[in-house]
């Protein structure tokens, strides 16, 4: 059944200048939905609108049927909608342990230690670097911490904005593998990506956004061979 329902959402940074212009989709538990598109297509804006960082001017976002309208970002995470931004996604001046401690602070006291332990088990690299300041982590570790921070509260929806940006192909593969594991644990994942090849390899479904609207939809890896997809990337090979 669908966890997240997005209906004809229009959103942008300034009134009268919508960047996302009427997008609808649903996302189910244990599914990875990949959002592709050229720069400026509105992918990040859509992801931020789901997270509550960008105001929606019309349309609705529902979590298990309940509208999130008017709910601030800090309340959405409490309801299980987590977001990993592309940049500035860890508290660089704080230690890895403090980053995780901040994340689990919204959970009941009894559950906090257990969730941190679960994250450190899922991301063994972080366990070794617990006392290090997040700003000193490598790019790959940093991305893992960003995901761990979002995942620490056991969200039902995890949205990621270009987690592969700036990572080596090997690390991109590792991140995608982690996302697959997370999906298999039942989390609904909305993945915004530029790296179509890596993202489609793990996608259950994918959509291509162009000029704020859905231009194409398809099923995961099969889209790699679809000439329409390459065309939407303005001749860029995918």
């Amino acid at each position: 059944m669908s966890v997240l329902t997005v209906e004809t959402v229009v959103a942008g940074y300034e009134p009268g200048l919508p960047i996302v212009r009427g997008v609808s989709f649903t996302l189910s538990a244990g599914e990875i939905l990949v959002l592709l598109g050229p720069n400026g297509a509105g992918k990040s804006t859509l992801a931020k609108a789901v997270a509550g960082l960008v105001t929606i001017s019309s349309g609705t976002v529902r979590l298990r049927g309940v509208s999130l309208a008017g709910m601030a970002a800090h309340d959405r995470i409490r309801h299980g909608v987590a977001f990993v931004p592309q940049t500035g996604n860890v508290f660089a001046g704080l230690t890895v342990a403090d980053n995780l401690a901040i994340a689990v602070n919204i959970l009941p006291r009894a559950e906090r230690a257990g969730r941190i332990a679960a994250m450190l088990a899922l991301f063994p690299d972080l366990a070794a670097a617990r006392r290090a300041r997040a700003g000193l982590l490598s790019g790959g570790q940093r991305q893992m911490l960003a995901i761990a921070r979002a995942l620490a509260v056991a969200p039902s929806v995890l949205t990621l904005d270009e987690p592969s940006a700036g990572l080596s192909p090997k690390l991109v593969g590792a991140v995608m593998q982690k996302l697959r594991e997370i999906r298999d644990s039942g989390v609904a994942i909305l993945l915004v990506e530029q790296n179509a090849r890596a993202a489609l390899a793990v996608a259950d479904r994918a959509m291509i956004l162009a000029e704020g609207r859905i231009a194409h939809e398809g099923h995961g890896a099969s889209m790699l061979d679809d000439p329409a997809v390459a065309g939407l990337y303005l001749g860029r090979r995918v």
């Binding site: 997270a51 509550g52 960082l53 601030a72 970002a73 800090h74 309340d75 995470i77 409490r78 987590a82 977001f83 931004p85 500035g88 996604n89 860890v90 508290f91 660089a92 001046g93 704080l94 901040i102 994340a103 602070n105 919204i106 921070r149 979002a150 509260v153």
Partner: peptide
Amino acid sequence: ENPDLARLAGI
């Protein structure tokens, strides 16, 4: 340090 990320972390 990062007000936006703080919001996302439920602060």
